[in-house]
Simulated assay, not measured.
Amino acid sequence: MCPIKALKGELIAEFIGCFILIFFGAGCVAALVLNEAQYTIWGIAVSLALYLTAAISGAHINLAVTLSLAIYHKFSLAKVIPYMFAQIAGTFKGLP
């Protein structure tokens, strides 16, 4: 597979993972405050985001995870900036 196509897929996966995490996570906190709902949705959101993106991008879904993997493990430094942009875009898009 072409490295550019692979990176594009990884970035889309990170975007979707961050979107799911924030959309459902912030949504469940809003529901808790307004209706005294339970926190079970937060756990489901985290699990769903991880299961959907782990095989494609490694499921970083967090800027700190991406940076730490680049510094302490063998994650490519060339991917850090694109991953961060995808994660920030997914996070902002997921805000309710």
Score class of each variant (00 low, 15 high):
1 M>D: 05
1 M>F: 01
3 P>V: 12
4 I>M: 09
5 K>I: 05
5 K>H: 10
6 A>I: 12
6 A>F: 03
7 L>H: 10
8 K>D: 04
8 K>V: 14
9 G>M: 07
9 G>R: 04
10 E>G: 13
10 E>C: 14
13 A>T: 04
15 F>E: 02
16 I>F: 13
17 G>L: 01
17 G>N: 02
17 G>F: 03
19 F>Y: 11
19 F>Q: 03
19 F>S: 10
20 I>K: 00
20 I>Y: 01
21 L>N: 03
24 F>Q: 01
26 A>D: 11
26 A>I: 15
27 G>E: 06
27 G>D: 08
28 C>N: 13
29 V>I: 14
29 V>W: 02
30 A>Q: 11
31 A>K: 01
31 A>S: 12
32 L>H: 00
33 V>I: 08
34 L>Y: 06
34 L>P: 01
35 N>P: 00
35 N>L: 01
36 E>D: 08
36 E>I: 01
36 E>S: 02
37 A>G: 01
37 A>Q: 01
40 T>H: 04
40 T>V: 04
40 T>S: 09
42 W>H: 08
42 W>M: 13
44 I>N: 00
44 I>C: 06
46 V>R: 06
46 V>C: 09
47 S>R: 09
47 S>I: 09
51 Y>P: 03
51 Y>C: 15
51 Y>T: 14
51 Y>H: 12
51 Y>E: 11
52 L>Q: 10
52 L>A: 13
52 L>K: 07
54 A>I: 15
54 A>F: 12
56 I>G: 01
57 S>E: 08
58 G>A: 07
58 G>W: 06
61 I>C: 05
61 I>T: 05
61 I>P: 00
62 N>S: 12
63 L>T: 14
63 L>N: 12
64 A>F: 00
64 A>D: 11
65 V>S: 06
66 T>C: 04
68 S>Q: 12
68 S>W: 13
68 S>M: 13
69 L>V: 13
69 L>E: 09
69 L>D: 03
69 L>C: 13
70 A>Q: 05
71 I>C: 14
72 Y>T: 13
73 H>A: 15
74 K>F: 11
74 K>R: 15
75 F>N: 04
75 F>L: 15
75 F>I: 13
77 L>T: 15
80 V>E: 10
80 V>M: 08
80 V>T: 10
82 P>Y: 04
82 P>Q: 12
82 P>T: 15
83 Y>K: 12
83 Y>T: 09
84 M>G: 11
85 F>N: 06
85 F>T: 14
85 F>G: 14
85 F>E: 06
85 F>H: 01
86 A>Q: 05
86 A>G: 06
89 A>Y: 06
89 A>G: 07
89 A>T: 14
90 G>D: 03
92 F>D: 04
92 F>T: 03
93 K>A: 14
93 K>F: 11
94 G>Y: 01
95 L>W: 13
96 P>Y: 11
96 P>R: 08
